[in-house]
Amino acid sequence: MPTFNAMPQKRNILLSDDDNDDCSLFLEALEEVKCDADVTIARDGVTLMQALDASADEKPEVIFLDLNMPRKNGFECLHEIRKSLVFGQIPIVIYTTSNSSDIIEKVYEEGANLYMTKPSSFSLLKKTLAYVLSLAPEELNRKPSRERFVVTVA
């Protein structure tokens, strides 16, 4: 089980989630796994796209994307990001409550890199986040196989 103790530089993470609690839990978990990260939070799809546009020179290394958001939902954002020439290559981790296979299938086809269901215990959240952030950038960036798309951490 890798940890972030050895992480050299500050991580640049973009989190898009409309849920306050989930955002704070996310930040707390990051803190507890000792990941020194600069987390930008977008509370809806429109804000997410604006944040991406604004970060042209300092692109986030990974985007955690909730699907169920106001104004512009995660599917639309995913689609737009993948089409973009500027930030189309940023790895996207779907971060959602749903574990429906149709949805998983859909976002896999749309080009998401990983799929992570919001766990129901804090320790599991920490473990899952730790695993995702331990992946090397090129590993995260690769189009995953369908079997390894959904993150499961025991």
């Binding site: 609690d21 919001k118 766990p119 215990s121 959240l125």
Partner: peptide, 13 residues
């Protein structure tokens, strides 16, 4: 599921 999951997370917390 969403509020339920949150309740579970906070309890575990």
């Amino acid at each position: 599921q969403e509020p339920l999951r949150k309740m579970q997370t906070f309890i575990s917390r």
